[in-house]
C-alpha cells in the first residue's frame, strides 16, 4: 500500500484522480491509500504548483517523499510522472514504480524513529494520566491539584495560578520532582475541589502546557530526531511568546530536528526548549521523516512584516 497525497489546486483534476484511485482500489488489493502530505509516501503535484521546484529539490537532497508530477507530458526530468488525465493503467504503472523505489530505499537506508521529546520522572505520570480517562490527584504532600482527564479539566489551588501564568509556588511545586506523586483518585475528590472557591478551574491542556514550559528539565530531547506539529497550539488559550508563533509556523508545515531549529538565527535554546516540551506535554508533537516545507511562491518583504509587528506589538516583543 502506497500512501498518496493529492496536492492539485484544480478541484476537477483532484476529483478525477481521486475517482481513478478508487477505481484502481477495486481492481488491486494493495493500491494507493489517499492521505495528507505529512503522512504520504508520494505527493501528486502539478508543475504549476508554487511549491513544485521546492518539492523536486527536496527529493533530490533528502530522497524522502516522492513527488509525482501530474502533467500532460513528461520532459524526462521528473523521477515519477503521471500522465494527464489519470487512468487506472497509468496509476498501476506508477504504483509498481513507487513500490520498487520504496523497497530499494528500505534495503539501503532503513530509518528508525525514536521519540523526539520524552518526559521523565513524575511528568511522565502526569502526561500519561492526562491521556487517560479517569480522575487524578497530583501532590507533594503539601499542595494538591486534581484532574478530570475525560473532560479535559483540572482544579488547581488558586494560590498556585495567576491568570494564564503560574505562581512561583506552582513553579516550585512542579520542580520538586522527587516528592511529587500522581495518583488516581475518586471522582468525588475532583468534584469537591472543582466546587471549592479555594480552587480555580482550568483547562487541562493549559495546565499541561504550563507544566511542559516550566519543567523542561524533566524532558529528554533527541536532538537529531525530526518532528513536526500535528497542528497549531491554541494560542488564544495558551500563553505564548512571539517566537512560539514562528516555531509553530515552521513545524506545522515540515519536520525538523531540534538541532536544525537551533541553527536558525532567530531561535534560542531558551525559547525552543520550553516550546517543544509544552507541545510534547499536550501531545502535539509527532515524529516524522524530514519533510521539506513547500513555501508560498511569493515571499513577503521582511521589512513589511517588521513594520506591522512594530506597529502592533512594539520592538521589544519577544
Amino acid at each position: 500500500m502506497v500512501k498518496l497525497a493529492i496536492r492539485l489546486f484544480d478541484r476537477s483534476e483532484s476529483s478525477h484522480v481521486e475517482m481513478v484511485v478508487r477505481q484502481l482500489h477495486n481492481r488491486v488489493k494493495d493500491g494507493f491509500l489517499l492521505t495528507s502530505v505529512a503522512e504520504a509516501d508520494a505527493i501528486l503535484i502539478s508543475p504549476n504548483d508554487p511549491g513544485f521546484e521546492t518539492l523536486l529539490n527536496a527529493r533530490k537532497s533528502a530522497a524522502e517523499k516522492c513527488p509525482v508530477v501530474y502533467s500532460d507530458a513528461n520532459t524526462g526530468r521528473y523521477g515519477f510522472f503521471l500522465s494527464k488525465p489519470a487512468t487506472t493503467a497509468g496509476l498501476l504503472k506508477l504504483l509498481e514504480q513507487l513500490e520498487r523505489f520504496a523497497a530499494d530505499r528500505t534495503q539501503s537506508n532503513p530509518v528508525p524513529r525514536k521519540r523526539a521529546v520524552t518526559p521523565n520522572g513524575y511528568v511522565t505520570a502526569v502526561v500519561e494520566a492526562a491521556a487517560g480517562q479517569g480522575y487524578f490527584c497530583i501532590g507533594n504532600g503539601q499542595d494538591s491539584l486534581y484532574l478530570n482527564a475525560q473532560k479535559r479539566k483540572a482544579a488547581v489551588p488558586v494560590y498556585l495560578v495567576s491568570g494564564k501564568q503560574l505562581a512561583s509556588r506552582f513553579a516550585a511545586l512542579i520542580k520538586s520532582s522527587p516528592t511529587v506523586a500522581v495518583k488516581p483518585c475518586p471522582a468525588v475528590d475532583y468534584e469537591e475541589a472543582a466546587s471549592d472557591s479555594d480552587f480555580q478551574p482550568m483547562d487541562l491542556d493549559l495546565l499541561l502546557w504550563l507544566l511542559g514550559a516550566n519543567s523542561h528539565s524533566r524532558f529528554d530531547i533527541a536532538t537529531d530526531q525530526p518532528f513536526r506539529l500535528k497542528n497549531w497550539p491554541d494560542f488564544a488559550r495558551l500563553p505564548y511568546k512571539r517566537v512560539y508563533l514562528k516555531l509553530a509556523a515552521l513545524l506545522s508545515g515540515q519536520a525538523m530536528t531540534y538541532t536544525q531549529l537551533l541553527n536558525r538565527p532567530d531561535v534560542t535554546d531558551e525559547d525552543l526548549r520550553p516550546f517543544v516540551c509544552a507541545c510534547a506535554a499536550i501531545g502535539l508533537l509527532e515524529e516524522s521523516e524530514p519533510v521539506i516545507a513547500v513555501s508560498p511562491a511569493r515571499s513577503t518583504n521582511k521589512k513589511t512584516i517588521e513594520k506591522i509587528i512594530t506597529r502592533f506589538f512594539g520592538r521589544s516583543r519577544g
Binding site: 512571539r242 508563533l245 514562528k246 509556523a249 515571499s299 513577503t300 506591522i308 509587528i309 502592533f312 506589538f313
Partner: peptide, 17 residues
C-alpha cells in the same frame, strides 16, 4: 488582543516562508 493574535500568526507564517 485576540484579533492581534490572528495578525501575529499571519506575520509568523510569512516570516518563516
Amino acid at each position: 488582543e485576540q484579533v492581534l493574535l490572528l495578525i501575529d500568526s499571519m506575520m509568523a507564517i510569512l516570516d518563516v516562508a
